[in-house]
Design a protein around this nucleic acid. Structure first.
Lengths: 131, 131
DNA sequence: CTTGAGCTTCCAGTAGCTGGAATCCATATC
DNA sequence: GATATGGATTCCAGCTACTGGAAGCTCAAG
C-alpha cells in the first residue's frame, strides 16, 4: 500500500503519517522506487494512533500505548494509569473552560451589542485590579 | 517602573511582557540605561491583556479588543461579536472534551487495572475499523 | 571593588502538525 | 518518444503563545 491508500483507510493525512515516521512512531518498509510500502500492520498502527489521538492522548502517551499494545507481558494497570491521568487532565481542562464560559456568558449577556461604545465586556477587562 | 515590578503587579511574567512588546501589543518607553520604563498606562494594558488571555481570547483577539478599548467611537456590537464567537468556540471545545471524557471514562471503568494484560482500553484503540 | 539581583538581547525549543517548493515516479494518451 | 497528470519524495518554514537559557550590561549594597 502507498501512503495515499493508508491515509484514506486509516483516516490519517499523508503529512501526518510522514511526521509519525519522522518521530519514530512507525517505520514502514520502502519499495525500490523509494515509496513507503505499508503493510497491514502499519495500517493497523495508524488506525490505533488516529483513535488514540482522537481521544486526546499526547504523542508520547501514544508511543507508550503502542508499546504496551505490542507487549504481551504488559499489565493492564499500566494502561489504566495512563488513561486515568489523561482523564484527569481532561477534567481539569473542562473545568477551566467551564469557568471561562460562565464569566464570558455573563459578560456577553450584559453587553447591549449596539452602536454605542458602552461595553461591560471591555469594562471587565480593564477593571482588573492592579496591586 | 521596571519590568519586574509591572510583571508582579499585572500578574504577567517578564518574558511574556517582552514577547508582547515584540509582537507590538505594547510599546513601553525606554530609560537611558536601556531598561523599559513602564507607565501606568502600560501596566493597565498588561492587566487588560492578562485578563483577556485568562478568558481564553487569542492574541489577535486581544489586539483587537485593546484597539476597541482605545477607540471611543467603537460600537459595543463589535466587542460583543468577538466575545460571542469566542464563547462559541469554547462551547465547541467543551463539547469535544466531554465526548472524549465520556468514552475514556467508560474505558477506564471497564479496565481491571491489574497485573494481567487484558485491557479494554487497548482493545478499543486497536479495534478501530479500517475500510 | 566585588557581589548579586535584575535588566538587556538573541537563539532555540515546546506540540503536533500543515503548507509549499522542488523534484522524482508511474501511468495513460497522442 | 513526448507529454500531461497524479501521486510520491525530501526539506524548510510557519503556526500559537510563550518559555528556557546563555552572554553580557546596570544598579545598589556592603
Amino acid at each position: 500500500m502507498n501512503i495515499g491508500e493508508v491515509a484514506e483507510r486509516a483516516g490519517v493525512p499523508p503529512k501526518t503519517i510522514r511526521y509519525y515516521e519522522d518521530i519514530g512512531l512507525i517505520c514502514p518498509l520502502r519499495s525500490d522506487n523509494g515509496y513507503r510500502a505499508f503493510q497491514p500492520k502499519d495500517l493497523h498502527k495508524l488506525a490505533f494512533l488516529g483513535r488514540a489521538r482522537a481521544l486526546g492522548f499526547s504523542i508520547e502517551d501514544c508511543r507508550t500505548l503502542l508499546a504496551l499494545y505490542d507487549d504481551s507481558t504488559r499489565e493492564s494497570a499500566q494502561v489504566k494509569q495512563i488513561a486515568e491521568e489523561h482523564l484527569h487532565q481532561i477534567d481539569e481542562k473542562i473545568a477551566q473552560l467551564q469557568s471561562m464560559r460562565n464569566t464570558l456568558a455573563h459578560l456577553v449577556e450584559a453587553c447591549q451589542g449596539d452602536h454605542r461604545p458602552d461595553c461591560p465586556i471591555l469594562e471587565d477587562l480593564s477593571n482588573t485590579l492592579v496591586d
